[in-house]
Design a protein around this nucleic acid. Structure first.
Lengths: 229, 229
DNA sequence: TATATATAGAGAATTAATTCTCGATATAAA
DNA sequence: TTTATATCGAGAATTAATTCTCTATATATA
């Protein structure tokens, strides 16, 4: 989805494969749960069994984080948790601005556990003056006209877009004006930003497509073959 | 992420590759926009240029939907839109129940454009009696105790989970009890369901990981090499 | 009418991601 | 102490996904 760069820009910095990056948080969550039970060690086999992944895949993913294990023993849970945090950049706090204080924005402002990942949404912005001056989950909502200025002044480099699709580009432009480095875009729309800005799109329609297609195929099959097996 | 089946279950029905399924909605959105401008034809090259995809990739994706084009001309936009809708199962309505009427649930209940994808959330459910009897975006919120029964009676086969992680399994169990076929899980938690149920997880932490890692790498590089290029 | 060109379509080549195989080793059991 | 076994680590093999190459063809231009 977010395939690095286009024709022009060469991929300067080698980042981990996206599939790996998407699996690491799942390991991370499991490891934290296990740690609470008092466990101290874990093997790839066990992680794989728990999350339905191939153990070798888990091992290769872990290898990327720089953790070394011991044969027959496995990895130290604490060490592994720290390595994943370090690898993902979850070991330091990143401050973020959120644009669009609708219900989706509100949901993200109150999302539990972002702080564990080092994400700290410090303020929200909206065009609607009625929404401004409100405080949602302890975060102030300000008028969007203040975004770029405040962003520069506070040196915030991370932006989250939760506005309707039609306003996504405008939101992105303001974030770019404020010197944004990375954008997490929840609006179902393509945004155009300078090459240097990292964008990840959280497009619900893309996920829905996966689900609807699978469901449709399954229904087709069961109706044509009359519920085989 | 949602890698089909585990060790035990063979993958009975051949579905399209997930990367393709995730790109199709992007083409679809672009095509609908273009159609509104009065255009009738489009080439893979143009789609690719617009969305920064390789034209061959676009062509292969389109091939899967069964659409045929003409050299030098391209595809008929209308035909292509219909083919994508048919392929994804967006040409017929799927009714869904939503579990968890918090702000995320509210956001989904008011999400614009789900109906274009054939998705119709018919009701929401929550444990909190204060939330019940409310109407959000025209949809009634009922007590969760009524879920399974109503689901069977109304023959709803699609469930959306927007409860906190700690309650996700309970929500999933109720949906399974109601005869669910596919679950769209927004809770950051693994849910266990029978093999026959299709699950797609919308795990924000997985997406965040991609973004934070890229951002971290970029910051590391610019600080060590002092803003090269 | 003849020529140039953009593009679909087929299939080969390449690249990325996953899975398998095997040797080394640390622990537990005999 | 010896043997058995689980598991890491390295690298080969496989599979999936993407990109490239070439041919045929439909349209536009000369």
């Amino acid at each position: 989805m977010d395939r690095a760069v286009g024709k022009t820009g060469r991929n300067i910095l080698i980042v981990a494969p996206e599939p790996t990056l998407r699996r690491l948080p799942l390991y991370y969550r499991l490891l934290k749960l296990l740690r609470e039970t008092g466990r101290t060690g874990i093997s790839c086999t066990t992680i794989g069994k728990e999350l339905k992944f191939d153990p070798t895949q888990v091992r290769k993913d872990i290898e990327l984080t720089g953790t070394v294990g011991r044969p027959k023993v496995g990895y130290d849970i604490n060490e592994l948790i720290c390595a994943i945090e370090r690898f993902l950049g979850w070991d330091h706090t990143t401050e973020a601005f959120l644009v669009g204080a609708g219900s989706l924005g509100e949901a993200l402002l109150g999302y539990p556990g972002f702080s564990e990942c080092g994400l700290n949404i410090v303020a929200a912005f909206d065009v609607d003056p009625n929404k401004c001056q409100r405080v949602i989950h302890g975060k102030h909502v300000r008028h969007i006209s203040k975004l770029a200025g405040l962003m520069r002044r506070m040196r915030v480099r991370f932006g989250i877009i939760t506005v309707p699709a039609s306003e996504a580009q405008q939101a992105a432009d303001l974030l770019v004006e404020g010197g944004v480095l990375a954008i997490w875009n929840f609006a179902p729309a393509k945004i155009r930003v300078p090459e240097r800005v990292i964008v990840t799109n959280e497009d619900l329609y893309c996920s829905l497509a996966v689900l609807s297609q699978k469901m449709t195929r399954k229904l087709e099959e069961s109706s044509s073959k009359g519920e085989s097996k």
